[in-house]
């Protein structure tokens, strides 16, 4: 029995309606966001920076940089969980594009991250603070890389919560990259090093690469190309979670 006289409310929305969808989506998407993980990451990041303040010791400039970089890593680990969505399979086939859904999540997390980063910078006394602009570039590159890796995990797997794998990959990169990067590719240079400028051009490259990766992973594919990495069959009642 269908409700008579029911309007096709969905029919109203066409071009330009995406904005209205995004606006309506802000609140429920804000509720659906796995806030706890980014909050834990951001909290740990601030804690790392606050410890020298609380203990009233002033770290050396190189140590201040290490603390800031670790704080960025902690925050990025939190962001790696941002694409987790337990309702993923239920909302897999809605007309609202994945790009828009992701954009709404991004719109929610960006101001929070900006605020967090400001607080993080302010926790480091200004005279030992490394160059703010360059370090903001590092922070942006790492955070976008975390988000792009999350998007890639969503794009390439069926897992509703790939966050922990993304975080592990990010940490692995963070530990191995400083060890294995050859000198001409050095990214993690100390302040005052003559390679600082060149290293930050590379950071800009990392940021650009992360943005491109993210851009590639946002749309839902219409065809299963050679890059279709879903090798495991999602069928069968015995393996519903397929992660």
């Amino acid at each position: 029995m269908r409700v008579s006289g029911q309007v096709r409310v969905g029919g109203q929305v066409r071009v330009g309606g995406q904005v209205r969808v995004a606006r309506e989506l802000l609140l429920p998407a804000g509720r659906a966001l796995p806030w706890r993980s980014p909050a834990a990451g951001a909290g740990l990041g601030l804690l790392i920076l606050a410890v020298p303040r609380l203990t009233d010791t002033e770290p050396a400039p190189w140590l201040a940089l290490v603390l800031l970089r670790c704080a960025i890593l902690a925050h990025a680990v939190g962001l790696a969980f941002l694409m987790d969505d337990p309702a993923r399979h239920t909302t897999a086939t809605v007309p609202t594009r994945r790009a828009l859904r992701t954009a709404v999540r991004l719109a929610l997390i960006t101001p929070v991250t900006a605020l967090w980063w400001t607080a993080a910078l302010l926790l480091v006394p200004s005279h030992i603070r490394p160059p703010t602009g360059d370090l903001t570039l590092e922070a942006a590159a790492v955070c976008v890389l975390a988000l792009a890796a999350g998007a890639a995990a969503v794009r390439l797997t069926d897992a509703p919560a790939p966050g922990v794998s993304v975080a592990a990959a990010l940490l692995f990169t963070a530990v191995v990259a400083p060890l294995l990067l050859p000198d001409q590719w050095a990214l993690f240079v100390p302040p005052g090093d003559q390679r600082w400028g060149v290293a930050h051009e590379r950071w800009a490259g990392v940021l650009a690469g992360a943005v491109v990766l993210w851009g590639i992973c946002l749309p839902e594919p219409l065809r299963r190309g050679p890059g279709a990495l879903r090798l495991r069959s999602p069928c069968g009642t015995s393996d519903p979670s397929r992660t």
């Binding site: 706890r36 993980s37 834990a40 990451g41 740990l44 790392i48 670790c70 890593l73 902690a74 680990v77 939190g78 790696a80 969980f81 919560a161 966050g163 922990v164 975080a167 592990a168 990010l170 940490l171």
Partner: peptide, 11 residues
């Protein structure tokens, strides 16, 4: 929580 181990790793 699955995030605890990655965060401890950062520390």
């Amino acid at each position: 929580s699955p995030i605890a181990a990655p965060l401890i790793t950062v520390v």
